[in-house]
Design a protein around this nucleic acid. Structure first.
Lengths: 235, 235
DNA sequence: ACCTTTATGTGATGCAGCTTACATTTTTTG
DNA sequence: CAAAAAATGTAAGCTGCATCACATAAAGGT
């Protein structure tokens, strides 16, 4: 249940998960053991709500989530949350550092506990990209996919009503994280309805109403931990 | 009257405009004469409405506008226009080709007459980027700025009302293309009110109303060719 | 277990901006 | 220059969602 444009997961001979992007094993290249040489202090454990970086921190590193979930957000003047992305294991963030960003312009927050990340200093990153041409290409390709994802959200906001946006968002979640179970697709999640609201650009009350509406119609079954989708095609 | 995050213009000793990005003269590197060696067939002239590339064309080149204006758009299922960018002289488009895009996912349309562009084949581009490290960095930096611009539009759509969005858009235009003239800033433009509507995510009628409202209040003076802003700070 | 905090559920009300429907003006074209 | 097409102006009515105002339920802390 994983679409294109995404990190893919497979199991190696040792029974470990391998996270790949476009056939390049980012996780293996970027993470733990291989990187001991580069990583002096880090490989850190975060608690829920911990800040991984702040706006105006200098963009010296990029990161990969090795455990948990990380939320990238900024805030409008009136304090409204702008959720740019929510990332899980094997996914990369802070990648704008590779595009000449000098200071972060958003927050990276741990939103599960414990959350672990692999940081990678920019110079080391460039070194790795030089050493491994395919890795470098994959990183840039990943940035390309991020742009397209943002463009899709933008388009939805521009021309689609709230219900449509929620349905499309659920479909995307199903595609990226869903587990098929008989006729259903199960999405394990950790989002509050407020989070959904921020992600699709509406208010919490509206999300509540829509989830219950979809439940009435027998299309989904929402709980705090999982969403079971009975009629993916009806969404 | 040109902000950061943008192409800057200056005049060289010969009286020619020089278009720079982050102190790297893209125009000189990418354009006409220097590139004779690379450019076999192109350096083309387009009429208003001509398509420079279609969705699904393979992303083999990136382009720089050398004359006129180019609009990057896609269309939603119901035929609504999604304007991703409008680019003028010295600006680059099709840059997602550098991020591993295989096929274009939008249209590039000439929207002035005549419009001229400098195409650059991807392999040649990579060659140039290898030869000139600063040039390569500038290109990626430019992509970074594009992302931030998109994020700003996204945020505005998410949390700001139509009038605020229009005012911010006008300020951005003033910053990027405005000419100061006494106490006024003059923006020469070529957009219809429908174009404005598509850019800020509203309907044409609403744009008409708002322009007239701003005119009533003595803040702007809208005509089809130019917008004079009397009170930039009041916007 | 109790208390506090955070998340969810649900109605009543309001309004920004979309829709619809034309009128008028400007530009383009034959 | 006339006719057609495109852009702009204006107004009345409607509606999708935000807002407000609570009630209930679940999670977390001590």
């Amino acid at each position: 249940m994983r679409g294109l444009n995404s990190i893919t997961k497979s199991i190696d001979k040792m029974g470990n998960s391998i996270w790949c992007f476009e056939n390049v094993n980012l996780f293996q290249i970027l993470c733990p053991h291989k990187l001991k040489q580069y990583q002096k202090d880090h490989f850190e454990g975060f608690k829920k709500g911990d800040v991984i970086y702040f706006p105006d921190d200098s963009s010296r590193s990029i990161f990969m989530v090795s455990k948990g979930k990380v939320k990238i957000v900024s805030y409008s003047e009136d304090g409204e949350e702008i959720v740019k992305a929510i990332l899980g294991k094997g996914e990369i963030f802070g990648e704008k550092a590779l595009l000449g960003e000098e200071k972060r312009d958003d927050y990276a927050l741990a939103c599960t506990e414990p959350t672990e990340i692999c940081p990678m200093q920019l110079p080391d990153m460039y070194e790795l990209m030089r050493q491994n041409e395919n890795f470098g290409l994959s990183i840039y390709k990943l940035i390309g996919f991020r742009i397209k994802k943002m463009e899709r959200r933008f388009e939805a906001l521009l021309h689609k009503d709230v219900k449509t946006r929620l349905c499309e968002f659920l479909k995307e979640m199903a595609d990226e994280n869903g587990i098929e179970s008989g006729s259903e697709v199960i999405i394990n999640h950790f989002l509050t309805q407020k989070d959904f609201a921020d992600l699709i650009g509406t208010k919490r009350e509206t999300v509540t109403r829509l989830f219950n509406e979809l439940k009435q119609d027998g299309i989904i079954n929402y709980t705090r931990k999982e969403i079971r989708i009975r009629g993916l095609e009806k969404l």
